[in-house]
């Protein structure tokens, strides 16, 4: 069941971005862990699709965490406290500590941003950006790219099947692979380009490049309160960051 949206997408994305900045400013494992437990975990659980988001975070950050652990755990030439040694690989306390700190920060970075991004409704975000009078071209590229993604994947699948029906064999020697790749990508890109040419004419015919106000068919879900809150949040994080560094420099 999708959760009832409380805040505007812009507010949620900004909050997530500012949280990442805070984690980088404070840069202690305690704070990173606290954010993970206090912000990311409830966010995922209340998102309405906890399984999907957990899976996305695991797939994105998991391999990176594991490889970071092996990389720094085994190969950390700066480390002095050697715990174990096999040939060129040395397990050092400093390396493990480094892996834990980087890994935790990475987990927060991925967790916070993915939770925010995967719960955001892109149409609502695009509509908000239009209402806030962001650059129309930017809004077009954002909305259009996100809309094209599933289309591109589906089309690639269809072309692959069609070429396989004509006798394309996936795999084999390198030259066969390259030929296979071209047999799929040439029709894919050509088809997409022809679509794009048609879209250009349609957009031009409807005055896409002309200046002037646009009518938006979706209601504005943004409120004056949230707009103020966004400015306050950004100012707050900026002030906190400055204060943190000032205190840190004074120490």
């Amino acid at each position: 069941m999708p959760r009832r949206r409380v805040f505007n997408p812009l507010t949620e994305l900004l909050a997530a971005a500012l949280l990442v900045v805070l984690v980088l400013v404070v840069n202690t494992w305690q704070f990173s862990l606290a954010v993970l437990v206090v912000a990311v975990l409830p966010g995922v659980l209340l998102s309405g699709k906890p399984r999907q988001i957990t899976l996305a975070i695991a797939v994105t950050a998991g391999p990176l965490l594991i490889s970071s652990f092996f990389l720094h755990g085994l190969f950390f030439p700066e480390g002095t406290t050697v715990l174990a040694e096999w040939g060129p690989a040395r397990v050092t306390a400093e390396g493990l500590q480094f892996a834990a700190l980087t890994g935790l920060r990475l987990a927060v970075f991925t967790g916070v941003l993915l939770t925010a991004a995967l719960t955001v409704s892109i149409p609502e975000l695009v509509s908000t950006l239009t209402h806030r009078r962001w650059n129309r071209r930017l809004v077009f590229v954002l909305g259009s790219a996100v809309g094209l993604l599933p289309h591109v994947a589906e089309r690639a699948r269809q072309i692959t099947r069609a070429q396989q029906a004509r006798g394309l064999v996936v795999g084999g020697s390198i030259s066969a692979r390259v030929r296979g790749l071209l047999m799929v990508s040439v029709p894919l890109v050509t088809g997409l380009l022809i679509d794009a040419a048609e879209r250009t004419q349609l957009l031009e015919a409807r005055g896409f490049s002309s200046p002037g106000p646009r009518t938006n068919y979706l209601p504005d879900t943004d409120t004056a309160g949230q707009r103020t809150a966004r400015w306050l949040m950004a100012a707050g994080v900026l002030a906190f960051g400055c204060a943190w560094y000032a205190v840190g420099a004074g120490r």
Partner: peptide
């Protein structure tokens, strides 16, 4: 131009 602009989402999706 509009034609470059329409091309961009395509490149991004690829």
């Amino acid at each position: 131009s509009t034609s470059s602009l329409v091309l961009m989402p395509l490149g991004i999706a690829l």
